[in-house]
């Protein structure tokens, strides 16, 4: 059953002529991990903003559990691409703050839970550091821990591992899978990424977006059973075929875009 629905959603930012998102229809099932790939400017981040309830759609309908999404809510946790930690709070305080504000924990229980979450992302020795004292990757790990502190049924993640180095990215991807499938009730994850391998490793389905204005070009089912193993996955001929398909879809878009621009300029 579709949990999150976008029905003919369009978004035009005030002052812009061209819509950022045009007539986007997408359904995400309960417990599904959907990855969105696409070139920059294809409305991936705008879609997150719409689903988070931070930006109202110009037209169309977004629903969660069949009720319209109008404002941010505790049923959706968001991991932003960047700068989402509160710089005046230490790593630990950022998580404690989220736990308390969401009303899940108070007092000593909040501190204990925050320490547990920080330990989970491997940063327990950095709990008293301010974000300005952490590397980009560490900040993003704290942001992920903070998002999971909310224990929301839906996770909206905007290139969460973009700023993380390759080694930590692998760890965090596995952590995401663990958290996603952990403790019985499966979370629903909407993951924006520019990394095709990441999408193929993590996702149940991949939505390929096209730019200017943002639309879904194709939805690809990822057939590999879980648990997936990176080492075997990359040798699977289906994996290579899917990877090439997505790449050529993206490249075709970019080529067409270029041709249009060049044609328009009269070259």
């Amino acid at each position: 059953m579709a949990l999150l629905k976008l029905e003919s959603v369009s978004l035009t930012y005030p002052g812009d002529e061209r819509p950022a998102i045009d007539n986007l229809t997408l359904r995400i099932d309960q417990g599904e991990l959907l990855a969105v790939v696409g070139p920059s400017g294809c409305g991936k981040s705008s879609t997150i903003s719409l689903l988070a309830g931070l930006t109202p759609a110009t037209s169309g309908l977004l629903t969660l559990h069949d009720s319209p999404i109008l404002t941010p809510g505790p049923d959706r946790a968001v991991v932003f691409q960047d700068y989402s930690l509160f710089p005046w709070m230490t790593a630990l305080d950022n998580i404690i703050f989220a736990l308390q504000e969401s009303g899940r924990f108070t007092g000593k229980a909040a501190i204990a839970e925050a320490n547990k979450l920080l330990d989970m992302v491997g940063l327990s020795s950095y709990s008293q550091k301010y974000p300005s004292e952490l590397s980009g990757g560490m900040r993003q790990r704290v942001a992920i821990a903070r998002a999971f502190a909310l224990d929301a049924p839906v996770y909206l993640m905007d290139e969460p591992f973009g700023a993380v180095d390759a080694k930590n990215r692998v760890t965090l991807q596995d952590l995401l899978l663990k958290l996603w499938g952990g403790e019985g009730n499966k979370k629903t994850v909407f993951l924006v990424t520019h990394d095709i391998d990441e999408a193929l490793y993590l996702a149940d389905r991949i939505a390929v977006f096209t730019p200017g204005p943002g639309r879904v070009l194709k939805i690809i089912d990822v057939p590999f059973p879980r648990p997936r193993r990176r080492f075997f996955l990359v040798q699977d001929p289906r994996y290579i075929a899917l990877r090439n398909e997505i790449l050529s879809l993206l490249q075709k878009e970019i080529l067409e875009e270029l041709q249009q621009v060049e044609g328009g300029a009269g070259i």
């Binding site: 941010p72 989402s84 909310l150």
Partner: peptide
């Protein structure tokens, strides 16, 4: 920064907490 306010909103902070803590 808009990102900071947005992330506070997604955490679901109350109006009072938005003023005092953010």
């Amino acid at each position: 920064e808009k990102g900071i306010v947005d992330s506070a909103r997604t955490i679901g902070v109350s109006k009072k907490s938005m003023l005092i803590n953010i």
